[in-house]
Design a protein around this nucleic acid. Structure first.
Length: 427
DNA sequence: TCTGGGGTCCTAGGACCC
DNA sequence: TCTGGGGTCCTAGGACCC
């Protein structure tokens, strides 16, 4: 059987690169993008990494670097990043017969059977993305997803590769040398806990893991890690998922901009979060038969007792109706709410998700009601799609939204909103 | 003062059944 | 006094990823 050839392409410091496209003065400067609520750094430029800023580091710990080192920070602007991502994925799709969009900033490409110089092909797609949308990328190529991931890591960390590393064209001995020089913790699927356990067994490098006995790994760890061993050896165990399966659960949860104590405000937040989750549910043509609602105080405050609780609620009949889902979620919220706490976060999860048109047997009255509800929801979604999110929403979401998150440093959505384009041009 | 959000998969263990 | 064992289903929690 012919070996597969897979590439992993990803945007370097993707969110930061998106901001730089519309603000070229940030080139060469330390830049971070902050999480929701401007809580912590979730993307860092090379210069920011060089300052020692860690992934996920709280903003309050690094904000002094603004003055000291000229650090620039942005609130996350997901509308912008999603739009840039779509453009990037669309360009990359031209370079391979099959593509799996793996996350907002990376995709796998199936290059099997392509009669080209793979390294040259990698440089060509990299140049195209840079030229057309201004995003720098790196390309890793190998015989499996895990190899492609590893190759991408090499392309990113070692400048001598010029952003493209093709393990599939290298002699086995060279690949092994590279693998011997990389910690096992860099392997896709090996996190902190597994690294510790592997190290305890004397498995320190990627090569050590590649050479481990798959059966022993399966017995002492899991079938997942056994698969990783085969993948490192160039035997592809993971398929390219070019059609994205519908979500099995849909989460909507957020920290508040300030502590919330009143049940009424929590109700507003849960109503808003469930509304967003239900929109996603309908967009993928599904219904949910259970939901989960949770609230908690800040786990970082040592001066107050922690309180967190969640409740899963089964629904008698599965639905995609925002009103029914909100009603159930609020009932759950009332059951877990305790007065006297400073709540910091709330969230909802839609679960037991099924396709809507699965041909379930219902009685005629239920069918008529469902039909009416479907039309109401369709109309709501259509209006919101045209006029902007939350143009029409449930009254329970509230108007003031004093609990809403802080986003003090958000950039303009330069690629999609015409008002913002004007703003960028006026700079 | 200030610490993200959204996912997947696997495993262990309990409940239940025969 | 003796007090099974194996299979299946479900759930909670762990680990990982970006």
């Amino acid at each position: 059987m012919r070996k597969r050839i897979l590439a992993l392409v990803d945007g370097n410091n993707f969110y930061v690169s998106c901001e730089r496209v519309f603000n070229p003065r940030l080139e060469g400067q330390p830049v971070v993008v902050l999480s929701n609520n401007d809580g912590c750094a979730i993307a860092r430029s090379q210069e920011a990494k060089a300052l020692g800023i860690a992934m996920g580091q709280p903003w309050f710990q690094i904000r002094h670097m603004e003055r000291k080192y000229g650090l620039t920070a942005f609130s996350s602007n997901y509308a912008l990043y999603a739009d840039m991502s779509n453009r990037m994925m669309s360009i990359l799709s031209q370079f391979a017969p099959a593509q799996e969009v793996y996350s907002i900033d990376e995709c796998f490409l199936d290059l099997t059977g392509l009669n080209v110089d793979l390294t040259a092909h990698g440089h060509a797609l990299r140049d195209r993305v840079k030229q057309w949308i201004g995003i720098p990328t790196c390309v890793g190529i190998g015989h499996s997803k895990t190899q492609a991931k590893l190759a991408n890591h090499i392309a990113k960390k070692r400048p001598e590769w010029n952003g493209v590393c093709d393990l599939s064209s290298l002699p086995e001995s060279t690949v092994n040398e590279l693998m011997a020089s990389i910690d096992v913790g860099e392997v896709w699927g090996v996190g902190q806990k597994l690294t510790e356990r592997l190290n305890a067994l004397g498995i320190q490098t990627v090569l050590d893991l590649k050479r481990a006995d798959p059966k022993v790994i399966q017995r002492r760890f899991s079938v997942v890690l056994e698969r990783t061993v085969w993948e490192l050896r160039g035997i592809a165990c993971l398929r390219l998922e070019d059609v994205s399966p519908p979500r099995q659960q849909i989460i909507s949860s957020r920290s508040f901009g300030r502590p919330v104590t009143e049940l009424n405000e929590l109700k507003e937040a849960v109503t808003a979060y469930m509304s967003r989750a239900a929109e996603k549910l309908r967009r993928q043509g599904s219904i949910a038969q259970a939901l989960h609602v949770h609230i908690r105080t800040s786990p970082f405050r040592e001066d107050r007792p922690y309180y967190g609780k969640g409740l899963t609620i089964p629904l008698i009949t599965p639905t995609d109706d925002t009103r029914k889902l909100v009603k159930a979620a609020l009932k759950g919220l009332e059951a877990i709410y305790q007065p006297g706490h400073d709540y910091q976060k709330a969230g909802v999860v839609l679960m037991d998700i099924q396709p809507k048109d699965s041909g379930q047997i219902t009685d005629m009255i239920t069918a008529l009601e469902d039909d009416k509800a479907t039309r109401v929801m369709q109309m709501m979604d259509a209006i919101n799609a045209r006029m902007g999110k939350t143009t029409i929403r449930l009254a329970g979401e509230g108007v003031e939204k004093a609990w809403a998150m802080r986003r003090g440093r958000v950039s303009a959505v330069s690629s999609t909103r015409i008002d913002d384009v004007a703003e960028v041009c006026a700079r």
